[in-house]
Amino acid sequence: MPDPTFEALVERHSAEIYAYLWRLLGDPELASDCLQDTFLRALRAFPRLRHHEHLRAWLYTIAMHRARTLLRQRARHESRQRELTDELADPHASVGQRVAERETRRRVRAAVGRLPPRQREALILRRYQGLSYAEIAAIAGGTAAAARTNVHLAQERLRIWLRPEVGDAV
């Protein structure tokens, strides 16, 4: 079987890696920059790669590390998240509804942003990218059990932080 070429790799995995970065960074433009950064790094490392069985996990790992670096560099990250939340806004909602929805999204986004990186990454990989705990362990390092714990802790924290305030539930 011929080696999978890098172009095939781009076609096969770029949409999935982009979705991951979009969720992790909360900013379509920043996610797009990070996607380029990820694949350019992968391109340089690809010829030296000896094992081609775990390319998807390998790309996820590069993307995860690039995203961490970008998040550290972007102190203004919080203010840029508006773009993603606007993309999701329902155009048919009333002004009042839209304000309330935007506020909810802001709270959710801020809560997810408060999670320790490993928990945030594990939660997104498991719950939204659909990866198994073993796959998460291969990407992030550590064990499948640790990945499961990270997802569990992330959900537990989010449930506490996003608990409806008194009067909100009614």
Partner: peptide, 8 residues
């Protein structure tokens, strides 16, 4: 509350 996270 996870429903709000899922929605996003």
């Amino acid at each position: 509350p996870m429903q709000a996270v899922d929605a996003l």
